[in-house]
């Protein structure tokens, strides 16, 4: 992995990094990738992947309102970074 790859991934992951940091991160990634490289030795032809281990399938619930797990407006807004007249203010994503 190169420093430019690290910068690209930082953009994808929405992680702000500075120029010094991408050097250290690239080194750490390469160390980790080196360790996990050994996995490629394992032959997995015809083997299905295991994404979950419970064996449960298609767990449904009724589409009902559960008042006991609902927040009041005050509760929902309490931890918000910025609010305005009962709404949460979010950063602009479109150009003016």
């Amino acid at each position: 992995m190169k420093r430019t790859d690290t910068q690209h991934i930082a953009t994808l992951a929405h992680i702000p990094i500075n120029n010094d940091q991408d050097k250290d991160l690239t080194a750490a990634f390469n160390e980790t990738l080196e360790t996990i490289k050994t996995l490629q030795e394992v032959k997995v032809g015809g083997v299905e992947p295991t994404h979950q281990v419970t064996g449960l399938e298609n767990v449904y619930r009724e589409d009902e309102v559960h008042k006991d797990t609902m927040f009041t407006q005050d509760q929902a807004l309490k931890n918000a970074h910025r609010t305005y007249q009962g709404f949460i203010v979010v950063p602009r994503i479109l150009e003016k």
């Binding site: 992680i15 702000p16 990634f29 931890n79 950063p91």
Partner: peptide, 22 residues
Amino acid sequence: IRYGGDRSHFGDEAKRRIMLGT
């Protein structure tokens, strides 16, 4: 936005793991 600080507050280890996973 809804709670907590923004993503600049992640420590080095969290950054490493999020980015490697990405």
